[in-house]
Write a protein that binds this DNA or RNA. Structure first.
Length: 649
DNA sequence: ACTATTAACT
C-alpha cells in the first residue's frame, strides 16, 4: 500500500508531464475518478500548473476552483496570481472578492494582496487600488515588503506619484526592488528629476536600477544624459542595457544611432536574443531599413531564432513596413507552428498599407476559418484595408459585424477608420453625419480626419465647421491651421489664407517639420525641408536640378504650387523651397547614389503632397526606376508613370 | 514585487 506522500509525488510528476490543456484535462479526469482531486495539496498544484505553465488553461483552473468544496488560501492565491498577468486581470479581483465572501474562515494573506494589487496595477484602476489598499491596512499588511512594493507600482501605473511616495516613506525597510519600483514610479509620472534624486540616494544600486534610469531618460528624450551619465558609466552592461538604448534611440527618431549601437553590441561579443532581435527589427520597420533588416533576417535563420513567434511577427512587420510585401507573404506562409492573432493582424495591416484591400479581407476570412477570433486591433486593420481600397460598403459591414457578431465595442480608432472610409470616398456628408451620431463625444483626431478630407475635396464650408470643433478640443495644433489655409488657397480665398497665417504667427504656432529618409548602403539618410547645407544636401540639390530639368523638357512637368504652399514650411523665406519637399531631396539623393535596377525606397513622416506625387510618377517613367514611398498613411509604388494608390490616398 | 520586444486610426 502506498502512503499519501508517495501519491502526492506521483501526481506531481504526472502534472509536470502535462504540456497542453488537453493532457491536463485527461489527467484531471483520472484524478477525479480516483477522488484524488479533492485533496487540497493535489488540487492546489493542479491550479498552479494551469495558472502558470499552460497558456490557455486558466479558465479550467477557474471553473475547478468554483466547484471545489473547501478551497484553501493557496488555491485562491494561485488563481489570483494567474489572472493578474493574463488578458483579464479583472478576474483576479473577482476571485479575491469570491475568496472573501465564500470562505469566512479564510483570511487574505500577503500573497493574496500582492497578486491582486498587481492585477489592479495592470488594470490601471486607481479606485480598485484604493479599496484594496484600505483592506490591506485592516489586515495589517500594508507595510509588508511585497505588498507595499506592489502598492508603489500600482500607484505609479495610476500616475498617483504622491500616493506611491507615501507608501514608500511609511515602509520601515524598503529593499532594492522597492527603491527600483519607486524610481520607476517617478519616471512613469514624467518626473525625471525626482527619479534622479532618489537614484542618487539609493544605498545599493544594481544593474537593474541603472537600466531603469536609461529607459526613463531615453523616454524623456534625454539621449545625451542617458548615454553619458549611465550607459557609458556602467561597469557592466547586460542585454537589457543595450536593447533599452537601441529602442530608445528609435523612439526619438535616431535610427542610425540605433542601428550603429546594434552593430556595436555584436562587435563587443554580445549575442542577440529574442527580445533584442524583435527590438532591432522594430527599428528597421520604423526606419524602413530593408537592407539592414535582411542582414538581421540572415542572422535569425542561422541562429535558430526563426522558430520563435515574436521574432517571426517582428520580421513579418519589418518586411511589410519596408514595402517588401512578397517577403512578408513568404515569412507569413512559412511561419512555423500556429500563427498567432498578431501574425494574422500584422499581415492584414501589411497588405492594407499597400492597397491590397481584397487580399487583406481574404486573409481576414482565412483567419476566421482557422478558428482565431479577431480582436479590436484586427478590426482596425480590416477597416483600414477597406478605407484604403475604397471598399465603403464592405467597411460598413465589417464595422457592424465587429459589434454584433463579435461583441467588440468600437473605440475612437474604429470610429476614426469609418470617418476615413467615407472621407476618402468623397462622401463628406456621410462622414459628418457618422461623427455627429457617434455614441461618444468625438475627439480631435476624428474631426481632423474629416478636415483632411475637406482639404482633398476642397470643401470650404465644412472645413470651417470642423475647425470650430477643433478649436474647442485642441486649438494649438498647427497642422489644422495649415490644412485650413491650404483649403482657402485652393479656393482662391487669399484674404482668408492671410488671416489664418497671421493668427498662426501671433499664436506662435509652428509646424512640425516634414522629413524623409532613404537607405543607401545600410545607412539611413534623412532630409528635412529647409535644412542647413551640408555635403549630402548639396549632392541631393545638384541631382534634383538635373532631374527637374528632364521632367520639364521630357515630361511637360509644371510645378503645382497652390495647395502645397504651406505643406512643409512655416515662413515666407522658405516659400521658395516649395519645390524641395524632403521626399524630393531623398529621391534625388538616392538616384545619384543607387546603381541601376535598384528600387528607391523612401519613408516620409507626413502625407505626400500632390506635387511630389506627380513628380514621383514622372521620374518612374522617364528614368525607368521603381520608387516605393511609405508616407504617413500608406505605401505608394511608382512604376512606369503610375502609382499603386491609383491616385486614391 | 522592479528594467528591454512585435499588430492599428490623424
Amino acid at each position: 500500500m502506498v502512503n499519501g506522500n508517495t501519491v502526492d509525488q506521483l501526481c506531481l510528476s504526472l502534472l509536470k508531464r502535462c504540456k497542453t490543456l488537453k493532457s491536463i484535462k485527461q489527467l484531471h479526469t483520472h484524478l477525479f475518478k480516483s477522488g484524488l482531486d479533492s485533496d487540497t495539496f493535489i488540487a492546489g498544484n493542479l491550479i498552479l500548473h494551469c495558472a502558470t505553465l499552460i497558456s490557455d488553461a486558466l479558465h479550467h483552473a477557474h471553473s475547478f476552483l468554483l466547484h471545489f468544496s473547501n478551497p484553501d488560501a493557496f488555491m485562491y492565491n494561485t488563481l489570483i496570481r494567474g489572472f493578474s498577468d493574463s488578458d483579464h486581470p479583472h478576474n483576479s479581483v473577482t476571485t479575491f472578492i469570491h475568496m472573501r465572501r465564500n470562505s469566512n474562515h479564510l483570511q487574505p494573506d500577503s500573497f493574496s494582496f500582492a497578486f491582486v494589487l498587481k492585477a489592479a496595477a495592470n488594470l490601471r484602476s486607481f479606485n480598485t487600488g484604493i479599496q484594496l489598499h484600505s483592506q490591506s491596512i485592516t489586515h495589517g499588511l500594508d507595510t509588508h515588503l511585497y505588498v507595499a512594493t506592489t502598492l508603489v507600482s500600482l500607484y505609479a501605473e495610476c500616475e498617483q506619484i504622491d500616493h506611491a511616495r507615501k507608501v514608500f516613506d511609511e515602509m520601515s525597510e524598503p529593499n532594492i526592488v522597492t527603491w527600483n519600483a519607486m524610481i520607476t514610479a517617478y519616471l512613469r509620472c514624467s518626473d525625471v528629476k525626482g527619479a534622479e534624486t532618489l537614484y542618487k540616494r539609493m544605498p545599493v544600486k544594481d544593474l537593474i536600477s541603472t537600466n531603469i534610469m536609461i529607459a526613463g531618460y531615453m523616454k524623456a528624450g534625454e539621449l545625451r544624459l542617458a548615454t553619458n551619465l549611465f550607459f557609458h558609466e556602467m561597469p557592466v552592461k547586460d542585454d537589457v542595457s543595450w536593447s533599452t538604448m537601441i529602442v530608445g534611440f528609435a523612439h526619438n527618431g535616431c535610427f542610425n544611432e540605433a542601428l550603429d549601437l546594434f552593430v556595436e553590441s555584436r562587435r563587443v561579443g554580445l549575442e542577440p536574443n529574442e527580445v533584442s532581435l524583435t527590438g532591432i527589427l522594430s527599428v528597421c520597420a520604423q526606419a524602413g531599413a530593408l537592407e539592414f533588416g535582411k542582414v538581421v533576417h540572415g542572422y535569425i535563420e542561422k541562429s535558430g531564432f526563426g522558430s520563435i513567434h515574436t521574432v517571426n511577427n517582428a520580421l513579418l512587420d519589418t518586411y511589410a513596413k519596408c514595402g517588401n510585401i512578397n517577403m512578408a507573404r513568404l515569412v507569413f506562409e512559412r511561419m512555423p507552428g500556429r500563427k498567432t492573432i498578431v501574425s494574422w493582424t500584422t499581415m492584414v495591416a501589411g497588405l492594407a498599407m499597400q492597397g491590397y484591400g481584397e487580399e487583406a479581407l481574404e486573409l481576414f476570412h482565412r483567419m476566421e476559418e482557422s478558428g482565431i477570433k479577431p480582436d479590436e486591433i484586427t478590426f482596425i486593420s480590416v477597416l483600414y484595408a477597406c478605407s484604403h481600397a475604397g471598399l465603403v460598403e464592405h467597411g460598413y459591414r465589417y464595422f457592424s459585424m465587429m459589434k454584433d457578431h463579435y461583441g467588440i465595442d468600437p473605440t475612437f480608432e474604429h470610429y476614426g477608420c469609418m470617418v476615413d472610409l467615407y472621407s476618402r470616398a468623397g462622401e463628406l456628408e456621410k462622414a459628418r453625419d457618422f461623427i455627429t451620431q457617434m455614441p461618444v463625444k468625438p475627439n480631435a483626431v476624428i474631426w481632423r480626419t474629416l478636415l483632411g478630407a475637406c482639404s482633398i475635396h476642397g470643401n470650404v464650408d465644412l472645413a470651417e465647421f470642423v475647425l470650430e470643433k477643433l478649436a474647442e478640443l485642441d486649438p494649438n495644433d498647427s497642422g489644422d491651421h495649415v490644412l485650413l489655409s491650404n483649403i482657402y488657397a485652393v479656393a482662391g480665398k487669399w484674404k482668408n489664407v492671410a488671416t489664418v497665417r497671421k493668427s498662426m504667427t501671433s499664436q506662435r504656432l509652428t509646424k512640425s517639420p516634414g522629413w524623409s529618409m532613404v537607405e543607401v548602403d545600410k545607412v539611413m539618410y534623412s532630409f528635412v525641408a529647409g535644412d542647413e547645407q551640408n555635403e549630402v544636401i548639396s549632392e541631393a540639390y545638384t541631382s534634383l536640378k538635373k532631374i527637374m530639368l528632364r521632367l520639364k523638357v521630357e515630361g511637360g512637368y509644371v510645378p503645382e504650387v497652390v495647395g502645397s504652399v504651406l505643406h512643409d514650411i512655416e515662413d515666407e523665406e522658405k516659400e521658395s523651397a516649395v519645390v524641395t519637399h524632403s521626399e524630393k531631396l531623398a529621391l534625388a539623393f538616392a538616384m545619384s547614389r543607387l546603381c541601376d535596377g535598384k528600387v528607391v525606397r523612401i519613408v516620409k513622416n507626413l502625407r505626400v503632397c500632390k506635387d511630389c506625387h506627380t513628380v514621383m510618377k514622372l521620374v518612374s517613367k522617364i528614368f525607368r526606376v521603381e520608387i516605393v514611398l511609405r508616407d504617413r498613411s500608406r505605401f505608394h509604388s511608382f512604376s512606369d508613370g503610375s502609382c499603386s494608390c491609383r491616385d486614391y490616398w
